[in-house]
Design a binder for these strands. Structure first.
Lengths: 257, 257
DNA sequence: GCCATATCCTTATGCCATAAAGAGTTGGCA
DNA sequence: TGCCAACTCTTTATGGCATAAGGATATGGC
């Protein structure tokens, strides 16, 4: 359920609260902020697919339709959730030990954020929400990248690639967790069952896909069972680390200070 | 609507067709292949969100329920669509002018594929479908990467990063197209309307987000109006090119031959 | 000719977003 | 003081979704 953004009026996104209130009618029992925060909590717990106007309303002791008093429709609510959630990201990074260290910390933080709020990954990036916190995120990253001394044209490509790698890793980790908890089958169990099935159903596997097998075979991700971290998640984090290293080396090669 | 995969029996994925048929009952009017191919056509045209058992059945002159004779449920149908669609990718790349050129062609092909079939991007990667064509794709890429001379452990990270960048770019392009055609508003119009709104609603923008503005300001993506390519798409393709270059430089830095 | 088996349909359940209309609440003005 | 207009929230309805259950019909093999 990719959700398309950038349709709303942006009035709610950028609203300045504070004007008192001297209007007829019953006092509002809810508020946009409360609804958005509640919807974020729901999405964090049950995922974007299970986020409905009803589930949010219910948690607030209201019907689904009550929310439409505050928010024009679900799409706009998701835009508000998206921008509000981004406020949870750190906004300043110490550059005293260089852009490389700062960028690594930034990538870790953003990845953790996405894993904590995986529904954020489902909000379309094509026509961005353009809320204040989205610009804050960009501003934070731009400040780090400025330290490379590279010109904006080059940096824009770097921004895309960084987000791609971070989001890709977070997506894998989040989806693995989601699948585990939704099906009750751990990564390890799932993988073993699938391997067995595969050998049974495609006995000529090694002949048909020799290079794929070679790629996957050697050096299984260290079976660090004490860590308790699930299989796929461990593999994803290792891939994230090395992908990021690759990218940072590429930035260096592009002439960064 | 991210769709979770890897639940089905894999029997349909790996089935060997050919056994004749000498069973009582009416002759099947449809087939799994026909349904899958039709569903792919529907998804290509209207997107994953509008893909329903009804829309597929209708195109075949049947009701939604008729499909359940051939396919156990929608999730399994999507798995089959996914693997079948991957068969459209090229499977061999000439390595005579080096891994770098081959990898660039591969990335272009895969990006084009995703843009042509954007719904493929919504199939979860965490627990892969494990169909024959998915392994063929991996095998093809592994063959190219083997030419770098790097060991499998290193290459696995490279595989992830490559897919992340390709998928990220394709996602942006596909979502931009989808948004354009769904809303009837071109990227350019949308962006101009949004800029105007933003200036009106956040007049202190330049003070609040100076680095973001700096990053975006200089060197607007060349206004190559003759190309006819939409704004966001052009930007995404430029970002893809430079992101890929970054990655290839990183691979070189990792010691590739 | 009949039965077991298949295909395909109708109907029903319980989700979803949201349109429309109505019930109840309250600030401010007459 | 009393009423109105504005506002909150609910009920109900529409048309979508996946899919469970059950029934009508077709057909190969006995």
């Amino acid at each position: 359920m990719t959700v398309y953004a950038g349709q709303g009026s942006m009035a709610l996104l950028w609203r300045a609260q504070g004007e008192p209130r001297a209007k007829p009618g019953p006092k509002p029992g809810l508020s946009v902020d409360l609804i958005v925060e509640t919807a974020i909590a729901v999405a964090d717990e049950v995922g974007m697919a299970a986020l409905s106007m009803r589930t949010v309303g219910e948690r607030l002791g209201r019907t689904a339709m009550a929310l439409y008093t505050y928010v024009p429709n679900k799409g706009e609510l998701v835009d508000l959730m998206y921008d509000r959630a981004l406020a949870r990201l750190p906004t300043g990074y110490d550059l005293s030990d260089g852009w490389r260290a700062a960028l690594t910390r930034w990538a870790d933080d953003v990845c953790d954020f996405y894993v904590r709020h995986p529904w954020v990954l489902q909000v379309s990036q094509a026509r961005p929400v353009l809320g204040p916190n989205e610009f804050t995120v960009l501003d934070t990253l731009a400040r780090i990248l400025a330290a490379t001394g590279l010109p904006p044209q080059v940096l824009r490509g770097i921004v895309s690639a960084l987000f791609d790698v971070v989001r890709g890793a977070a997506r894998t980790i989040a989806e693995a967790r989601q699948a585990s908890s939704a099906t009750g089958v751990s990564d390890e169990e799932w993988w073993q069952a699938r391997s067995a099935l595969l050998q049974e159903i495609a006995p000529d596997f090694a002949d048909r896909f020799p290079m794929a097998l070679w790629l996957e075979s050697a050096g299984e991700p260290s079976r660090d069972l004490e860590s308790g971290e699930p299989y796929l998640e461990r593999a994803a984090r290792q891939a994230f680390r090395s992908g990021l290293t690759l990218l940072l080396d590429g930035i260096k090669a592009a002439g960064a200070a």
